[in-house]
C-alpha cells in the first residue's frame, strides 16, 4: 500500500506540476471559457511564456482567496464592483496600465472610470449589461417596460425567470419603483419586498442559466445578461433583448494584477497584450461580449459587430454602473432575499 501511495504521489507530481519549458509562467485566475485559446497560443508564442488558466465560479470565491492571503496568481479578471473592493482593501498591484504602449487603444469612456481612476490597476477586458429577454411570439408589441416582468400579463404568468442574483434582482426592482439603487432606505426595501413577493407566484425559477429556459420555451420572459441573450436568439429568433426604459445595469470585467503576483513582468506583458485591437477582438468573438478597445471592430465577426445585444439603440440611456453597495445595504438586501425565499 505504501509503495502504491509513493507511486501515486510521484504520478501526481509529474502530471500535475506540468512541464515548464517556457521562459516563464503566467497564472491566470478567471471565469471559465472566457479566455480565447487562440489568444493564449499567440501570447505563448510571442513571449515564450507558458499560460496556466484556473477558473472561478463567482467573484466571492476569488475575493475570499485573495483576502485570506493565498496568492500565486499573476492575473485576475474582477468585475468593476469587485474592483472597488480590491482597491480599497489594497489587494492590487499598481501596474500603471495608462503608461503602457497599447493604452492608446483604450476607448476614452473606459479610461477614467470610477472603479479605477486613471487606470492605475487595470485594463478593460469585456463589458456588458443586464436587461431582460422576451419571446416576441408570446409578448406582442414593442413595450420595453419592466412591467412585463414585475406585473405580468396572464400570457406570461408562470413563465418568468429571474437571475439568481440578489443585487441584480433588487436593483432592477428598485428601478421599476423609481427608487435609487444600492438603497439604504428601509421603506424602499420594504416596497421592493412587497413587489417581489407579489411577483413570486408567477415566477418559474430564479436561475442564472437563462439560455436553455428561453430557447425551450419554459420561460417567455427572463432577466438576462446581453451575451446570453444573443446566444439564445441564435437558437430562437423570436427572442428579443430588451433595454428597459426604466434603466438597466452595466458591468465591466477588468484585467488586474493581485498583490504579490509571482511574475509581475509577465503579468504586465499580458495586460498590455489585452489592449491590442486584434487581441481584444478575439475576446469579443470568443466570449461574445463587447471589449473596450478602439479599432477592434475591424477584427470582430460581422454578425457580432451588428448584434442589437451589443449595440444599444441610440434612444436608450447608457447603462448604470453601480459601485459595490455598502455593508448596511448588503445586509438589507440579504434580508429581503431571505424573506422572499424563506
Amino acid at each position: 500500500m505504501k509503495s502504491l501511495t509513493v507511486f501515486t504521489a510521484a504520478l501526481l507530481a509529474s502530471v500535475l506540476a506540468g512541464p515548464a519549458f517556457a521562459a516563464g509562467d503566467l497564472f491566470i485566475y478567471t471565469w471559465g471559457e472566457y479566455t480565447p485559446p487562440e489568444m493564449v497560443a499567440k501570447f505563448e508564442k510571442t513571449y515564450d511564456v507558458k499560460v496556466h488558466i484556473d477558473t472561478y465560479d463567482s467573484m466571492e470565491t476569488m475575493l475570499a482567496k485573495l483576502k485570506s492571503g493565498a496568492g500565486g496568481y499573476d492575473i485576475i479578471v474582477p468585475g468593476h464592483d469587485t474592483m472597488t473592493i480590491l482597491v480599497r482593501e489594497n489587494l492590487l498591484e499598481p501596474i500603471n496600465a495608462a503608461n503602457m504602449p497599447n493604452y492608446k487603444n483604450v476607448d476614452e469612456k473606459w479610461r477614467d472610470v470610477f472603479w479605477d481612476k486613471g487606470r492605475v490597476y487595470s485594463a478593460p477586458w469585456a463589458w456588458g449589461s443586464t436587461g431582460f429577454v422576451v419571446d416576441r411570439a408570446v409578448v406582442k408589441g414593442n413595450d420595453t417596460s419592466l412591467k412585463i416582468l414585475f406585473e405580468p400579463d396572464d400570457t406570461v404568468k408562470g413563465k418568468i425567470n429571474m437571475l439568481r442574483d440578489v443585487n441584480d434582482v433588487i436593483n432592477m426592482a428598485l428601478r421599476y419603483l423609481g427608487k435609487p439603487r444600492c438603497n439604504e432606505n428601509p421603506e424602499d426595501l420594504k416596497a421592493v419586498l412587497d413587489l417581489l413577493s407579489s411577483q413570486k407566484p408567477f415566477v418559474k425559477s430564479y436561475n442564472s442559466e437563462t439560455k436553455e429556459l428561453l430557447v425551450s420555451g419554459e420561460a417567455a420572459v427572463s432577466m438576462s445578461w446581453n451575451g446570453y441573450a444573443m446566444r439564445a436568439r441564435d437558437e430562437k429568433p423570436t427572442l428579443e433583448y430588451i433595454y428597459p426604459k426604466e434603466g438597466y445595469t452595466g458591468w465591466m470585467d477588468n484585467v488586474a494584477v493581485p498583490k504579490g503576483a509571482p511574475d509581475l513582468e509577465n503579468a504586465k506583458l499580458w495586460v498590455n497584450f489585452v489592449m491590442a485591437p486584434e487581441n481584444a477582438a478575439m475576446i469579443t468573438n470568443y466570449a461574445r461580449y463587447s471589449n473596450g478597445i478602439k479599432g477592434s471592430e475591424a477584427f470582430v465577426e460581422k454578425a457580432l459587430a451588428a448584434a442589437p445585444e451589443l449595440n444599444p439603440p441610440s434612444d436608450v440611456a447608457a447603462p448604470e454602473f453601480l459601485s459595490a453597495c455598502t455593508p448596511a445595504t448588503t445586509k438589507l438586501y440579504d434580508r429581503v432575499w431571505t424573506k422572499l425565499l424563506r
Partner: peptide
C-alpha cells in the same frame, strides 16, 4: 477554496463555464 494556481479539477472547470453558458 483550497486549490492553488495550476491545480484545477473537473468540477472547478465545469462550474467556471456556467457564466458563459
Amino acid at each position: 477554496l483550497v486549490a492553488g494556481p495550476g491545480a484545477t479539477t473537473l468540477p472547478l472547470h465545469i462550474y467556471g463555464m456556467l457564466r458563459l453558458g
